[in-house]
Amino acid sequence: MFIIDRKSNRITKLNQKTFSELGFRERDHLQEWIANNPESIGEELLIIQKEFNGFHDTNERLDLLALDKQGNVVVIENKLDDSGRDVTWQVLKYASYCSSLTKEQIKSIYQDYLNKISKNEEAEKNLIEFFEVEDYQEIVINKGLTQRLIIIAANFRKEVTSTVLWLMNYKLRIQCFKVTPYQMGDQLLLNFEQIIPMKEAEEYVINMAEKNQADINIQEESKTRHNTRILFWKKLLPHINKKTELFKNISPSKDNWIGAGTGISSVSYNFVMSRSYARVEVYLQRSVKEENKFIFEELGKFKDSIENKFGDSLTWERLDNKKASRIKYQKDDVNIYNEEDWEDMINFMVTSMLNLENAFQKPISEVRSKLISKLNTDEI
């Protein structure tokens, strides 16, 4: 830091000092400065306790406890010339301890603080004023996992900064402020600098953390979905394999469908399930669109006999805008992710697949012969 001399048009470097050189102590000085002027760290905070130790089964105490304008609890940990290597673990513990504090407990903690510093004030009135509301009942404090962490030190070890940056990927709201004392003659100056996240990039860092967490959530959700599907297929396959050879060589899958051959390449009998239905189908997915449409039309010539043998009407989807075509039978209002629906789904799917195989076996054999003939004469 430099001081500007207007007359000489020169700058003079200020003498950077350490707190220990100046005889300052963490609790008696740095903590008091921040407690009495929390705006020094760049925002309006309400300090509600110093040296808070109101945790069950532990004698640990955090330096400063505060609230921000959104009603989030803010844990502030101060270090002097060195952050130490364990400060991140400290603030995480404190945040976990504070996460269970209720609104009334926080009001009580704040009232104790006001009494301790001999301020003849009421916590409830101060909270109403700080949050700029008319009624105490309107105030929402410490909702969910919204606790914030602020670490203040003259120097931060690499193991601290790297850990903080990593934790931010999980949407933990952590800020690191570097505080530096300077001396100019008899005058002392103090500079607060937010180094993590950098003030100019704070919004970007928060957005990236949210994106990273969303990606992690998607991965975890996908993993859960995959495991559920595998378990469902493991339950279904033994039932169908007792009654037909069709799926004997098919293994449980993480996908929402499994299929078995019909006798025509890339035309399959499929089981399909989702959050809203269970389905059996004949799915035409050959690489050439015209071949799928030809098979669909030829099978359509047997529609009446197929449905009579199946025992119900089927849904015939030519899917003109797609390469594939489908003939399906579906049960709605069942959910693969609700295990209570599984028995109903399995009974429906097994019975329907047996009927589907029985109804399509002969028509597919005849259409296969026609397809081979068409391909040999290049008419498709």
Results as ranks from 00 to 15, higher is better:
111 Q>W: 02
65 L>P: 01
89 W>I: 13
122 E>K: 14
134 E>K: 15
104 E>V: 08
105 Q>W: 06
84 G>M: 05
117 I>A: 07
94 Y>D: 04
189 L>W: 12
178 K>C: 03
149 L>I: 15
188 L>K: 12
120 N>K: 14
122 E>F: 08
169 N>T: 08
147 Q>D: 11
75 V>L: 11
192 F>R: 03
158 K>R: 11
118 S>Q: 14
153 A>L: 02
131 F>H: 08
83 S>H: 09
119 K>D: 06
134 E>Q: 13
86 D>S: 12
92 L>I: 13
179 V>W: 02
152 I>E: 02
106 I>F: 04
69 K>N: 09
58 T>H: 04
193 E>M: 00
197 P>G: 05
71 G>V: 07
70 Q>W: 01
143 K>N: 13
120 N>E: 12
186 D>F: 09
138 E>R: 12
125 K>L: 10
146 T>D: 12
177 F>Y: 14
172 L>E: 10
129 E>W: 00
193 E>W: 00
82 D>M: 09
143 K>E: 15
138 E>C: 10
195 I>E: 01
160 V>L: 06
89 W>R: 15
140 V>I: 14
127 L>P: 05
165 L>I: 14
189 L>Q: 07
103 K>P: 01
185 G>W: 07
173 R>N: 15
101 L>V: 03
167 L>C: 11
121 E>W: 02
146 T>R: 12
178 K>A: 05
70 Q>P: 00
90 Q>K: 07
140 V>M: 11
188 L>H: 09
191 N>M: 13
142 N>R: 08
117 I>H: 07
149 L>N: 08
116 K>R: 15
76 I>F: 04
198 M>Q: 13
60 E>M: 07
126 N>D: 10
197 P>Q: 05
83 S>I: 07
65 L>H: 00
95 A>H: 03
120 N>W: 01
192 F>C: 04
84 G>N: 02
141 I>S: 08
199 K>D: 06
154 A>S: 13
129 E>K: 12
100 S>Y: 08
116 K>T: 09
187 Q>Y: 10
153 A>W: 04
79 K>F: 01
93 K>D: 10
69 K>W: 01
146 T>N: 15
83 S>F: 05
85 R>T: 14
162 S>G: 03
57 D>K: 14
179 V>M: 02
54 G>T: 03
104 E>N: 11
63 D>Y: 01
85 R>L: 09
87 V>N: 01
70 Q>R: 12
74 V>Y: 00
127 L>T: 03
102 T>S: 15
172 L>H: 07
96 S>N: 10
101 L>Q: 07
66 A>I: 06
158 K>I: 09
99 S>W: 00
193 E>G: 00
181 P>A: 08
169 N>Q: 13
110 Y>N: 06
80 L>M: 13
